[in-house]
Design a protein around this nucleic acid. Structure first.
Length: 492
RNA sequence: GUCCCCAUCGUCUAGUCAGGUCCAGGACACCGGCCUUUCACGCCGGCAACACCGGUUCAAAUCCGGUUGGGGACGCCA
């Protein structure tokens, strides 16, 4: 069998969204699994809406996800001449015809049909134009589009979808579709097929919204005398109200860029995406890329659409809880050495990175990440919830301030006293710091928790965190003493 | 309106093709408990689904028909 050749053909009319990323991922997985190639093709024939920013955004999103391609990016507009030749050939061979119906007429007919609840579709007015009519209209210089002449055959045309099974449609239900605009520029249906033929695409994996296009494209392959690729139509991703997700109605939350900015681990996001409509058939949910490539198969892609479980204004989950949970899983289980570069990047962009973290304090950096990551949801938490570990300008949160500090006014004496004890202690170790803290509690006649939680509030600003004395070790004697001495200022 | 696709816990899903091992398994979320100086993690337990109706069969989540529901397409967008 010859090599498999897949393609991901985004149209650069917006950012890369979840649905597009998932399509790209499935294509990538299949290409990698079969040892084939993935071709990236930018379908920019809609010059009105295509933008450079959008192309950059899509490329950036794919790069972030780690979805790499073997050929391209090709730009569809670079092959315009080839598309026109194909259209001309179809015209010459009588497989297409010129249509002089104006946009306005068509629009009127369509609306009338819709209003009368009748079948919508081109009525074939120009299909039966006589040669004389044609010559006359051309002589008049009337603008014309080129329509594909759907064969008037009995029965059905169809194909074997790798996900959906047999898909077919009666010839008479397909209307003559436009393949070239009146300005001479070819349209998607044609360009896409011509490009797939040229790029020797063997498998077309795309969304189910292309199913009806596929029937028309089948006709195009036949007319162009080209072999058919394998088609696989994956279910769409809907929102929790079962509407197709889109930039317009959902905004940034469906953009891959959003997840990059919000501190998702790229692979974790892929892992979430792949599970939206596919499962390995057993109970596994986490995969390395090798494992996923191995486990992936077209046949196990679900037939029904899945829901991106996002609830606007949910105070607890800023996006699909499953996505967050998968991210958390990777955040706390991946090798610290692999996580460190991601944290470094985030710290850098917040101005919290110190070069020593990559050199003499590297071990400290890795240990700190390991200590605090267990409670975080995203990489961004290292600079928000975990700010006190990397900077001195961390904020004291309202809740711990009230609950753990202001509630015990005496802490403004106890904590500085503890600071003194820490400063003069012979050793600043786990055991010694804990012993001194408990001693402090005993002298103050309060439960150790009062001292410990007060201390946690002062040195980290947080209500919760790792074991207190582990924190102290990571922070170091100097910082701890300094921070504890500032306790009284928090009471004002 | 026409055509097409789909239908298992709130969500992602296993099980459907080869009917019995499924009074339906896992994960997320939720609720309880254990652990604990805090909060998490972890562990233990709980809640929670075969859309409906009919048929075939000794036996149906699984096969067939219909109904309902959801989605998609019907562009000189891609």
């Amino acid at each position: 069998m010859s090599e498999t050749r897949l393609r991901f053909p985004p149209s650069p009319t917006g950012y890369l969204h979840i649905g597009g990323a998932r399509t790209a991922l499935y294509n990538w997985l299949y290409a990698r699994k079969t040892g084939g190639k993935l071709i990236l093709r930018i379908e920019d024939t809609d010059t009105e809406r295509s933008t450079r920013a959008s192309i950059d955004g899509i490329l950036d999103g794919l790069n972030w996800l780690g979805i790499d391609w073997d050929e391209g990016p090709y730009f569809q507009t670079d092959f315009a001449e080839e598309h026109r030749r194909a259209a001309a050939r179809l015209l010459e061979e009588g497989k297409a015809y010129k249509c002089f119906c104006s946009k306005e007429t068509l629009e009127r007919k369509r609306e009338a049909a819709l209003a009368a609840k009748e079948t919508v579709g081109y009525d074939g007015t120009c299909r039966s134009l006589t040669h004389e009519d044609l010559l006359q209209k051309e002589a008049e210089g009337r603008p014309a589009v080129i329509r594909f002449k759907v064969p008037q055959r009995p029965g059905k045309i169809g194909y074997e979808d790798r996900i959906l099974g047999r898909i077919e449609s009666s010839y008479r239900e397909i209307d003559d579709f436009v393949i070239v605009r009146s300005d001479g520029s070819p349209l998607y249906l044609l360009c896409n097929v011509v490009d797939d033929i040229r790029d020797r695409i063997s498998h077309v994996i795309r969304g189910q919204d292309h199913m009806t296009n596929t029937i028309k494209q089948l006709l195009l392959y036949e007319a162009l005398d080209a072999p058919l690729p394998v088609f696989a139509h994956m279910p769409l991703t809907l929102d929790n109200k079962k509407a197709k997700i889109s930039k317009r109605s959902h905004g940034e939350i469906v953009a891959v860029q959003f997840y990059k900015e919000h501190g998702f681990i790229p692979w974790a996001f892929n892992n979430y995406l792949v599970l939206l409509g596919w499962s390995p058939g057993d109970d596994r949910e986490f995969f390395t890329s090798e494992e996923l490539i191995e486990a992936f198969s077209l046949e196990r892609i679900n037939r029904s659409s899945s829901i991106f479980n996002y609830h606007k204004d949910d105070p607890k989950f800023f996006t699909d809880p499953k996505a967050i949970s998968i991210n958390e899983h990777y955040l706390r289980s991946m090798a610290v050495a692999e996580l460190a570069p991601l944290v470094k990047e985030r710290l850098s962009s917040e101005g919290l990175w110190d070069d020593s973290y990559g050199q003499e304090r590297q071990q400290w950096f890795l240990d700190t990440i390991d200590l605090i990551r267990g409670r975080f949801h995203t990489i961004n938490d290292f600079t928000t919830l975990g700010r006190a570990y990397f900077a001195d300008d961390y904020a004291i949160e309202e809740k711990p301030l009230r609950k753990n500090l202001l509630k015990y006014p005496e802490l403004k004496r106890w904590l500085p006293a503890l600071a003194d004890a820490y400063e003069t202690a012979e050793q600043f170790t786990l055991e010694e710091t804990e012993r001194l803290a408990r001693k402090c509690a005993e002298e103050a006649a309060v439960k150790p928790g009062v001292i410990i939680n007060g201390m946690r509030t002062v040195v980290t600003g947080q209500l919760a965190g790792p074991s207190m004395f582990d924190i102290l070790m990571v922070l170091g004697r100097e910082k701890v003493v300094k921070r504890l001495r500032k306790t009284p200022s928090l009471f004002s």
